[in-house]
Amino acid sequence: MNIFRLCGDMSHLAAIIILLLKMWKTRSVAGISGKSQILFATVFTARYLDLFTSFISIYNTCMKVFFIGTVYFTIYLIYMKFKATYDSNHDSFRVEFLIVPVGGLAFLVNHEFAPLEIIWTFSIYLESVAILPQLFMISKTGEAETITSHYLFALGSYRALYLCNWIYRYYAEGFFDLIAVVAGVVQTILYCDFFYLYITKVMKGKKISLPA
């Protein structure tokens, strides 16, 4: 554990809590992509299968359980409790265009051709692109509520901080995981356009609205 890793995890935790608070307080899931949340649920479920096979630490186990629990609760809010506010017309990203290539890539490029390892690799690749339905939705509607922007900023920062963590770990421990690093770079790059809008607009008190 180092400061970058801890900040990354806290940023991830904050993103999830911000999203839940937004939905709970406004009794609405408007502007939130259910498809991205389903992809995140797939990511967490696939990656944290090791909850059953290996124990790392109390911290590790608690975070995994929290991430899995909250993502399924988020899906419940979107597709059941606050279904009436869900904007399915604008959540039209074709997720099969992500799942299929990512699944194929996980089979071809992995650390070890073993079931759990392939599933872990799949989760890493899928996470890197799981936000695309959400970003697609914002580009379709042309706007994002400020609270949704805070959510995305925290969520994007998390992997950017992990990149710092990996640089640190490479020098401090000789730790290097090429698959995680490349996917993390891709993931962070996908947020760059959003980060720019966040810094130039949201931080100055304006909400994100894109020209039609």
């Binding site: 890793r5 790392i56 995994k64 490029v109 650390h111 051709f113 390892e117 992990y162 963590n165 730790f175």
Partner: peptide, 10 residues
């Protein structure tokens, strides 16, 4: 490929 690495990260 490489050996599988332990997954202590989230």
């Amino acid at each position: 490929g490489d050996d599988a690495v332990p997954k202590d990260e989230l």
